[in-house]
Amino acid sequence: MKHWIDRCVLGFWQDKEMRLEAAHLLDLADAVLEEQLPLRTPFLGLGLAQWFEGVLQKESLSYQIQGGFPDSERVCYFLSKNSDDFEQVREGIALLTVVSLDPHVDLEHRQILGSLMGLGLKRELIGDIHPEIQGMIVAVVSEIADYLLQEWRKAGRANIRVERVHGELHLSEDPGEELRITVASSRIDAIVASSFKAARGVVQEWINQGKVKRNDLMISRADLEVKSGDIISCRGQGRLRLLDDSETRKGRIAWTIIIYRTQKR
């Protein structure tokens, strides 16, 4: 296949695995340019999505973004040379509702995601996982929906019922808690430590264990600088969104954040 898009943009990614994912996205974009057919990407986390959108804006490709929910954090890009073709890919995402058959067992995010991965599914096929009034709602690529409706029967130790979502969504959204924290610097370890009231040494261990992500990308450096709009998640603790920052009279940095104690993705 001809490379329509300059592969030099892959130099942005230092991590080999992320570079491979990014190269796959460029292959999809090249296929659209070459074959003039609309295509859909897998679900992308915020960091990869922001990079890919920057690439698309430099090319003559139309795109739409969908994740299945009004405020999706994991999204798919629908690509086309002609914006009129988007009707062909509009049904590329399916929403499934998952309900525990045991009224005394509440489903959790980790049970849902773990059971899906246990079925051999890649993370890129799965979007956001939202709590619902009676269970959970999961966004998936449409081609695996029928398989899940037939084969997905357990999440953790809970027996489950899986159905397609019909009609209006009834999400039980965690509104989060708005807080103001002050830190000596905007390093990610300082932000996480202050937000989750943990020692910096503990946060370093979380980072070493691969528990901390910024914009859905795992981080390896405690001194990584953050910016407004970043979403930081810490497995087992929750996630937070950085809103804005300002300098205090004592030269420290005050951040306004929204912290979510429940895991969303």
Rank of each mutant, 00 (worst) to 15 (best):
G156R: 04
N82F: 08
L148A: 02
L113W: 11
N82R: 11
H109Y: 15
D128W: 01
A139E: 01
G118V: 09
L116M: 10
G156I: 03
Q111D: 12
P175D: 14
I144S: 02
I126V: 11
A184E: 12
D174P: 09
D174S: 15
D84Q: 13
E168K: 13
M136W: 05
V183E: 11
G176W: 07
N159Y: 12
L171R: 09
E91Y: 12
P103M: 11
V138Q: 02
L95A: 07
H109L: 11
R187V: 00
L169T: 13
E173T: 15
L101A: 13
L125Q: 13
E163S: 14
L169R: 08
P103L: 08
V98F: 04
Q111C: 02
I144A: 02
L125A: 11
G114E: 13
W152E: 01
S185H: 07
I144H: 02
E87P: 03
I144F: 05
V98H: 02
W152C: 01
S83L: 02
I112C: 06
Q88S: 11
E87V: 15
D84E: 12
L119M: 12
E87H: 15
R90S: 14
A94K: 04
G176S: 07
Y147G: 06
V183M: 09
A94R: 05
I137C: 10
I160L: 11
G118I: 10
V162R: 02
V98N: 02
R110N: 14
P175S: 15
L179Q: 14
Q134T: 10
P175C: 15
G156N: 06
F86Y: 11
Q134F: 06
G92S: 14
E124F: 05
S186L: 10
H104P: 00
G135Y: 03
D106H: 14
I188K: 00
D102L: 15
A94L: 03
L107S: 13
L96Y: 05
R153Y: 07
L148D: 03
L179C: 07
V138L: 05
N82A: 07
D189A: 02
A158T: 05
L119A: 00
A184L: 11
E173K: 15
A155H: 04
N82L: 07
V141I: 10
I188R: 02
L149F: 02
M136N: 04
R123E: 05
D106A: 14
R187C: 02
A184H: 10
R123I: 04
R153N: 09
I188V: 15
S115G: 06
E177S: 15
E132M: 06
S83F: 05
N159W: 10
E132L: 04
L121A: 05
G120K: 07
K154L: 07
G127N: 01
E177C: 12
S185G: 03
V89S: 12
I188C: 12
R164I: 06
S142H: 10
E87G: 14
I181E: 03
V183I: 14
G118S: 11
M117F: 13
Q111L: 12
E168F: 08
R153C: 09
G92E: 12
H109W: 10
